[in-house]
Amino acid sequence: MSETVIRADDGTFAMINVFEVEPEKQKELAEVLSEGAEKFIRHRPGCLSVNILTSLDGRRLVYYAQWRTKADIKATMADPDVQFYRDKAALLGKPDPHAFTVFAVHHPED
Rank of each mutant, 00 (worst) to 15 (best):
I6S: 09
L48I: 12
M1H: 10
D72P: 01
D9T: 06
T69S: 15
V102L: 11
D81E: 14
R59A: 08
M77P: 08
K70E: 15
V32M: 04
P45M: 03
E24R: 06
K39T: 01
P23R: 11
H98Q: 15
Y64W: 12
D10F: 05
D96I: 06
Y63T: 00
D10S: 04
V62S: 10
L48G: 10
E3S: 09
E20T: 12
G58Q: 03
V18T: 12
V62Q: 06
L61G: 12
P108N: 15
G11C: 09
A99N: 13
I16R: 02
M15T: 03
M77K: 09
M77F: 11
L53N: 15
H106W: 13
W67L: 08
H98Y: 13
W67Q: 03
G36Q: 02
A90W: 00
V105P: 07
K25C: 07
E28G: 01
L48M: 07
M15I: 01
C47T: 03
R60M: 11
D10I: 06
V5A: 03
E109K: 15
D72K: 09
K39Y: 02
E3M: 07
K88N: 04
D10Y: 13
D81Y: 00
A89P: 01
H107P: 11
F103R: 15
L92N: 06
D81H: 09
K74H: 14
R7F: 05
P45T: 00
K25I: 04
D79Q: 02
I6C: 09
V21Y: 07
Q26W: 02
R86V: 03
F84P: 07
E3W: 02
K25N: 14
G93W: 05
Q66G: 14
Y64N: 12
L91N: 15
A78N: 10
E20M: 10
L92Y: 08
F103I: 15
L53H: 14
T76M: 13
G93S: 08
W67M: 07
D81N: 09
